[in-house]
């Protein structure tokens, strides 16, 4: 009951700020256009919808919009003082952290989901045929990606004192996954593996490179866009990437549920 009150409050708040509508419109426009414009290849043949700019658009837009809507979920109200009103009532800190996550997640999934509906509409309008069923796999991946990005944004929001820091931490984490993660692998390989054996990368290094959420999402969508014609190692398969993403969903939320109850507001 208590968690439900908090979730409802956060979900309502998200709509009340009107930014949820802006974000929905953004996804409809971006993904709808990606579906429409990518329907034909350069050679004039019809492209599969999963091979359009939809995955790339999602890879870029989802982290930005979730951070925009999620960074203030806890830190912003902590900064303004409205968290003191929220917590003047019998909700536990955990319920507030979890409620903030779920309450933000609903509107964000709705926004991204609407965009994912717009993509096949744009595609069908242009290509004159419905997208293949594998598009549903892409939908699942993008929604999972949205869950992860929201978990990261709201989780960080519960771990820092101000909304500004939550933005900084969110961007930092995202860029860290994008650049530092692979660099780190390469550095370790460079220092531990003799030059002659560095290419191809040792298997443990290849696994490591696929263990961050950004690589997992991009790796998974690449499998859809460019279906491989040779057998894949386990750590290159779609289920593996999806599992990596799912684990990364849990991590920031678990950290927030553990730390936030102990924090001085």
């Amino acid at each position: 009951m208590s968690l439900r009150t908090v979730v409802e409050k956060y979900a309502l708040d998200t709509h009340r700020t009107k930014s949820a509508w802006v974000v929905t419109a953004l996804f409809v426009a971006a993904l709808g256009f990606a579906g429409y414009s990518g329907a034909y290849s350069y050679e004039g043949t019809v492209n599969p919808l999963v091979a359009t700019a939809v995955p790339t658009s999602a890879a870029i837009l989802v982290p930005l919009t979730t951070l925009a809507l999620g960074h203030g979920a806890v830190a912003g109200s902590r900064e303004s003082g409205s968290l003191r009103v929220l917590l003047a009532f019998p909700h536990s800190r955990r319920e507030v952290a979890a409620g903030a996550f779920l309450g933000r997640l609903g509107p964000l999934l709705a926004a991204v989901g609407t965009g994912l509906l717009a993509a096949p509409i744009g595609y069908t309008a242009r290509a004159g045929q419905l997208p293949a069923a594998e598009y549903l796999v892409l939908v699942g991946l993008v929604l999972l990606w949205t869950v992860f990005c929201t978990a990261l944004a709201v989780g960080l929001s519960a771990l820092v004192a101000t909304g500004r820091r939550a933005i900084g931490a969110g961007l930092g984490t995202y860029l860290g996954f994008l650049f530092v993660w692979d660099w780190l692998v390469n550095e370790v390989v460079r220092r531990t593996v003799p030059r002659a054996q560095r290419y191809p990368l040792p298997e443990w290094a290849q696994v490591w490179r696929n263990l961050d959420p950004v690589s997992a999402f991009n790796g998974a969508t690449r499998l859809l866009s460019y279906p491989p014609d040779e057998p894949l190692a386990v750590y290159e398969t779609l289920p593996f990437f999806a599992a990596v993403l799912a684990v990364w969903v849990v991590l920031p939320i678990a950290l927030a549920l553990w730390r936030f109850p102990k924090t001085d507001l």
Partner: peptide, 16 residues
């Protein structure tokens, strides 16, 4: 907090 009514200090109302 179920049994307490609170008028806190340094608070802000819920936006909108």
């Amino acid at each position: 907090r179920q049994r307490v009514g609170v008028l806190p200090d340094g608070y802000d109302t819920f936006p909108e």
